[in-house]
Design a protein around this nucleic acid. Structure first.
Lengths: 347, 347
DNA sequence: TTGAAAGCGCTAACAA
DNA sequence: TTGTTAGCGCTTTCAA
């Protein structure tokens, strides 16, 4: 009789088989060989475990080992295709390695980010991949005091002792400008991203440098914006084009982000300014729709998939103990200009 | 001397203060009032906890309580703006409630989904929100055997005893057709989504029903496709338009998804078929770029934010014990036609 | 080759 | 109003 129900954990499975928990644990965590468990015992345990669907409870293991097999990923906006693609790459890779990922959206808000960091630390995430909200060294720099492996991406802080993955934004912006100057443009505006954020700063540096090289006075090149939203970009676009006399009007513009491009196109449409006849556009961040708007957009494409791969690898290396966690190592990737039809040649 | 370092957990904090762990636990978990802890003791504990940054370790708590304050979210493709927006809404809401979200991407693969489900169960997610990969009752139906609260969205299985949130896809498709027949179209194609998936089935039902109502023979209305990818849609588009004699060619087409629309537009472009002159389009799923392609697209907009809100609320209700977890309750939301310029009127 | 027992950090039952 | 203690499920040290 003694009707005992199915075993649900190692404890019960052990009792069920008349074996010690230790042995069961060893077998189910793949350590059978190391402890020279007899083939027969191993077999019995494996079979029974499969039969009852018993797996070691990760929470118990976490408590014991201090390892959660969980990593945290924080991006400022999952709905942005750039970050969505990045998140997808990260999640895929870590799942393959047996990690789960806690994904959080900081909504471009430093306070949210700080809270998120606290949450992830208290949940004992074993590693963190972060695209910081940008601007001044925020909550992220406090991570230096901890020992969690951290990898920064995109919005990086180059002075922090973390592995970082970013695009060479200076070069990318320069190329964008060259693409335009090479086609006769001399008045080139830019629509800036979040003030103080790394990509914005770098892109702007590249933008300025390229203009200088081309001998174009900065005063001919209006700039506006201040964050990565479409709304701000739409307003900035109006500011630039509405009040300018046609003669002073820029003939080309470089929006510093995907959402920014959306805002730009919207305003341009409202102002009845056609692309590329009235204004040429070289847009930052290749998007799924880049080739489908009218006209198809010439873009600066960042290698997102590769960024995800690299960021994941860096973190995995640290987790594997191959690399020290507090190493200022900046991985810089090249962006590519995808040439389409939003740039006209001025003769 | 007795140089003891800073307390890092409730245990040590208690010792540090000469108080029992119990009291510390009670205060730090906000139960001070319930146990009538003296204001003074509470104060001391709170201060010290803040000073040393001591918080209850969620893992210890999980093990003890069997509650992880974690929910699992599975979508077939985070890079799809529809699901990205949904995920964003879910994450935001649950964070506010003190839950973390384990986000996983099933990549439209039933095996991956099954594995994901196992992972989430073994990690003791307290609730699951799932947009199943679709097609036949898969791993999701096995969840009936468990007790985890589950909410299904979009790709639902109407017979399962779970709360579900979806758009009224039949009505939505009908409206799309009416929008076209009302403007004189009689040959209306459709580009189908994943075969056997709920939204595809419903949309197709609505599509057929509306045609029948309008007295249009189905034979005049080609349909192709078979999943939600751009590639399949591009091929399907070619199949429909390349081989049809101009007279038999549909004058309008309804793509059943965002990626599908991308593929459609790409092929239409390649075939030199302009919208709306050659073909009118009413596209499923409003996208960030819908208003920016040329011409701006008339779309069927699902209320994603509301879907996220609703799904979250349903799950939260179950978690709060207000509602039974195994209730077949289908929440149906209305989609809206967003009328833009991709439909021409045939006289 | 296997096992007994301790302990990770927490909360709740029970006691005072 | 506060404290003692058991135990959640696991892995590992030590012992056999």
């Amino acid at each position: 009789m003694g009707e005992s129900s199915d075993p649900t954990n190692l404890q019960e499975l052990a009792r069920h088989l008349g074996i010690s928990v230790t042995t069961v644990s060893r077998v189910l965590s793949g350590q059978a060989r190391r402890f020279r468990i007899s083939k027969q015992t191993e077999e019995r345990i494996q079979t029974a475990a499969a039969q009852f669907g018993v797996r070691p409870d990760p929470i118990g293991a976490s408590l014991r080992l201090g390892r959660t097999r969980t990593i945290g990923l924080i991006v400022p906006d999952v709905a942005n295709p750039f970050f969505a693609a990045f998140a997808q790459g990260i999640e895929r890779r870590f799942r393959k390695e047996g990690y789960a990922v806690l994904l959080c959206d900081s909504a471009e808000d430093a306070d949210v980010e700080a809270e998120l960091l606290r949450v992830m630390l208290s949940r004992k995430a074993e590693g963190l991949i972060i695209a910081p909200v940008g601007q001044k060294l925020g909550a992220v720099s406090a991570l230096v005091e901890t020992t969690v492996p951290v990898v920064l991406m995109d919005r990086i802080f180059p002075d922090l002792p973390f592995p970082m993955v970013a695009t060479d934004n200076i070069a990318a912006a320069k190329e964008a400008v060259h693409h335009l100057t090479g086609r006769g443009h001399r008045r080139i505006a830019c629509l800036r991203g979040l003030e103080g954020s790394f990509p914005d700063g770098e892109r702007f540096k590249g933008f300025q440098a390229a203009l200088k090289e081309a001998g174009i006075p900065l005063t001919d090149c209006p700039m506006a914006g201040g964050d990565y939203t479409a709304a701000t970009a739409a307003k900035a676009t109006r500011d630039i084009f509405q009040n300018a006399k046609p003669k002073n009007r820029p003939t080309a513009i470089i929006p510093f982000g995907g959402q920014i491009t959306l805002g730009l196109l919207e305003s341009l449409h409202a102002l009845n300014l056609s692309v590329p006849e009235a204004v040429s556009v070289v847009a930052f961040d290749e998007q799924p729709w880049s080739s489908l708007v009218s006209p198809p957009l010439t873009t600066v494409a960042q290698p997102v998939e590769e960024m995800a791969r690299l960021a994941a690898s860096r973190l995995l290396e640290v987790l594997a103990g191959k690399v020290h966690a507090r190493e200022n190592r900046l991985e810089v990737l090249k962006a590519k200009i995808v040439s389409r039809e939003s740039v006209r040649t001025i003769s």
